[in-house]
Design a protein around this nucleic acid. Structure first.
Lengths: 335, 335
DNA sequence: CTAGAATATGTAAGCACTTACGTAAATACT
DNA sequence: AGTATTTACGTAAGTGCTTACATATTCTAG
């Protein structure tokens, strides 16, 4: 029953996991057959536990599970099977009454001379198979395991997704048709966390006169034709701009839209010769503060004698554009 | 919960299957997480079926199972889940009423634009991970699959076992202490399949005078101190020997003991300058005949005018030692 | 020294496959 | 044409793990 797996091959790296699974299942099946053929009453899944107990025992259930990289119920189940066969026995730890310590029974120990030869056969068969591939397969598996330990497959996929989203997001400067978006995107977060103040309404209703006419800029993030985020750069003087009115719609969070908007604003400020970007925010907006930090903004003292235009402001930050950006910050912002 | 898997590594190639299994399980888990994180209602195990139906449909259950290398109940279960979600629909084949043909529903088709991007993310994440190993992993898996298709892991293990047994078997020439073994080993098979004849009793009871004194040889196979098989070489004339009285005890069949005994006998005959080995046997002893064939013996006509000493003889074979042995025969005998 | 957190274990249920087996339809073989 | 075999499929139960949860100890911080 040889199956034609060309289709699976054609799926490429996507089917990696499926193929590895099938491969391992077939191997374990064959090993099981080999035991049966020599009428050895031993299951392949007992092997790691047996080998571990042979080398160091007694060991507690959880210790074993950790060492073998499986969950403790798995060990529990395997151990109870082996106990039924009389290969393993359990005793409770004198010092820690929760622990149940496993050891091989004399019968278990006495099985070794029977098992050892067939293990050698299995190992050599595997070795020859691996040799045919011309690759140090165990080394490759080591590297795969190491790579996944460093960064899980899940996190790697996430990273790809973030990158894709970021590439798809388009940053644009203000156009009159975006006026309504500028207002609604900002009211969304203001009304969610605070209350709209008089200054909010004035600025959001008249972005041209309040921001653009005095030399400021407003940016919009568009994804698949939809405007999902905005932020403004208000000119304070020739060397100083204020970052304000940054908002990303709830549904589009996690797509790094804020990241890209902020990067665009900083880029623009640099290109028009600014030396400092200043901003006011609220301590409750920790994701925003985290984003500012990521881009190099640092907190400055909140001087109560110099009150903000906004009641909600309780944090002030700034970014010194004359300082050379640290490589770490640059790298972070690409994520 | 990073587990310290040094112990597993130490097991080497023996733990290959376990490690592959754990690796694939972790990957599939992470892929499942990635779907969930993007709130995509899709299970990793649907993937191959979905991709296959997308490319070519309709397809019957068994066809799909074969193409994807799993059993048909697996497809049945996956399909019924996907049908519950409205992604797949079934229709019966007009030509063959046994068949149930699967296709994607329009809803299923419409899922593609959602799925495609995340598949790309997964593929690229896998690609990067593989790249870190510095090896063409898919190529290696191809080779492993091909290698196991050529010869299953089971058969490879068997081969190793046979080789090990063969190496452990020790061939010795006659010593007086072996006289009883010579008799019992032969009576075992003679009485099982036939009846001991007068000539049997005479030869088995007096091997020295009947075989050795006239220039013959008797060989014994010993494994772990036990005598498990024997065979004799009777001198007919300076250039011709007869192979006879070959017997391996029932319990030790399958350990290639006969193979090694026969090889030793042929070797001895060559070394004493024989040009032909002749033998008589019975057609019911097909394993023995197969063994003789393996070593290059060929059947010769059974000339009834020239009767055998034994009633049971109905097959005559011979091996021409002057002919150069074909490489195939040589290779076969090493197995 | 004591409440709450952490740890070790057991048990149940779930999951993604498998094997085993039964039925219906198609095909092969006289 | 009629019977035996093969093929397609469904269903039930098994397998070897997992997650989820309950319970008993031990540790730890105030």
């Amino acid at each position: 029953m040889s199956t034609n797996i060309d289709f699976i091959k054609q799926l490429g790296d996507l089917a990696l996991a499926s193929r590895l699974k099938r491969l391992s299942e077939k191997m374990l099946q064959d090993v099981s057959l080999a035991y049966k053929e020599q009428s050895i009453d031993f299951e392949p899944r007992w092997f790691t536990l047996f080998a571990l107990l042979k080398e160091r025992s007694p060991l507690s259930i959880v210790d074993i599970a950790k060492t073998l990289g499986v969950t403790h119920p798995a060990i529990n189940q395997i151990a109870s099977e082996m106990m039924k066969k009389g290969l393993v026995k359990a005793s409770s730890d004198k010092k820690d009454k929760r622990k149940r310590l496993l050891t091989l029974t004399p019968l278990g120990e006495s099985l070794t001379p029977t098992l050892f030869p067939i293990w050698q056969d299995i190992e050599q068969a595997a070795q020859k198979l691996i040799f045919e591939t011309g690759v140090d397969l165990m080394g490759v598996i080591d590297k795969l395991e190491y790579g996944m330990e460093q960064q899980s497959m899940f996190s790697r996929i996430q990273e790809q997704t973030r990158q894709r989203w970021q590439n798809a997001v388009e940053i644009m400067e203000y156009q009159p048709v975006f006026r309504a978006h500028f207002k609604s995107l900002n009211l969304e977060w203001i009304e969610r966390y605070f209350e709209a103040e008089e200054a909010d309404i004035r600025i959001l209703s008249n972005p041209e006169s309040e921001i653009l006419d005095s030399g400021g800029h407003i940016f919009f993030a568009r994804l698949d034709g939809e405007i999902l985020g905005t932020c403004a750069l208000i000119k304070l003087d020739d060397k100083t701009y204020e970052l304000a009115k940054m908002g990303v719609t709830e549904a589009a969070r996690g797509k790094c839209i804020g990241n890209k908007l902020l990067a665009a604003a900083i880029e623009k400020a640099k290109s028009v010769g600014a030396e400092l970007i200043y901003l006011e925010t609220n301590s409750r907006l920790s994701p925003a503060i985290h984003l500012y930090r990521k881009h190099g903004f640092v907190c400055i003292p909140f001087d109560a004698h110099h009150p903000s235009e906004f009641q909600r402001a309780d944090v002030r930050m700034q970014l010194d554009l004359t300082a050379t950006q640290s490589p770490q910050v640059q790298e972070r912002c690409l994520r």
